[in-house]
């Protein structure tokens, strides 16, 4: 019965799922979760850098979305909303970790680095000839400040000036972090230095 309900919801678009979830259909929200969990998890993992914190960020993101279902946009902006929320939660977590401030997320209880499991991830980078695993590992080796800028710009499509506003740093700093981050990735993935 439950599986039937889930499969009948699969063909609906985000807007319809949100409307159904707003009217109290929990299965519709679960469908939204299944549809967007990978994207939200990728953004979270790329920012926080470990699987335990990334899972907590995803949890917090969907809980917030559920609590604000009444205002969740139904015009196709669901993914953007989820990714933006995940980004904010993840950045707060990284900042708290830097300042050593205690945060409420359970993630902070376990400070050990949890290596993410990439075994099911698609190998989509034929041109780069690297797997998602290699690309993510290279990304995780970049310092936090550069990685956050890279993720915001490339994964989420946030403009340079918007990143500057978001992080409260000058545009020049965003550009230089972007440059250093890309250069780091290029060296890691291509294994060479061009003089």
């Amino acid at each position: 019965m439950r599986e039937d309900q889930s499969s009948s919801l699969q063909h609906l678009d985000d807007a319809e799922l949100v409307q159904r979830a707003q009217s109290g259909q929990r299965a519709a929200f679960e469908s939204l979760f299944h549809r967007h969990q990978d994207r939200v998890y990728t953004v979270a993992l790329a920012i926080v850098g470990n699987a335990t914190d990334a899972k907590d960020v995803v949890q917090e993101t969907f809980v917030r979305a559920y609590k604000r279902l009444g205002s969740l946009r139904t015009d196709g902006g669901v993914v953007a909303y989820l990714c933006k929320t995940a980004t904010n939660v993840a950045i707060d977590l990284v900042r708290a970790r830097k300042t050593g401030k205690q945060v409420s997320l359970d993630a902070m209880k376990s400070s050990g680095i949890d290596i993410p499991d990439f075994s099911n991830s698609p190998q989509a980078h034929a041109e780069l000839q690297v797997t998602n695993e290699e690309l993510m590992n290279a990304l995780l080796s970049i310092p936090d400040d550069q990685r956050i800028v890279l993720v915001l710009h490339h994964l989420e499509g946030v403009r340079v000036d918007e990143i500057a506003d978001m992080l409260g740093i000058p545009m020049g700093t965003v550009k230089s972090r972007l440059g250093r981050g890309r250069e780091w990735l290029r060296r890691r993935l291509y294994g060479k230095v061009i003089d």
Binding site: Q37, D38, R39, V40, Y41, T42, L45, A46, V58, P116, F118, N120, S121, P122, A124, H125, E127, L128, V130, N132, L135, M136, L139, L150, V151, H154, L155, R182, L185, R186, L189
Partner: peptide, 12 residues
């Protein structure tokens, strides 16, 4: 690298 980052997806 830029294109690779844009399409990066990790299965939750």
């Amino acid at each position: 690298v830029s294109a690779g980052l844009g399409g990066l997806t990790i299965v939750a």
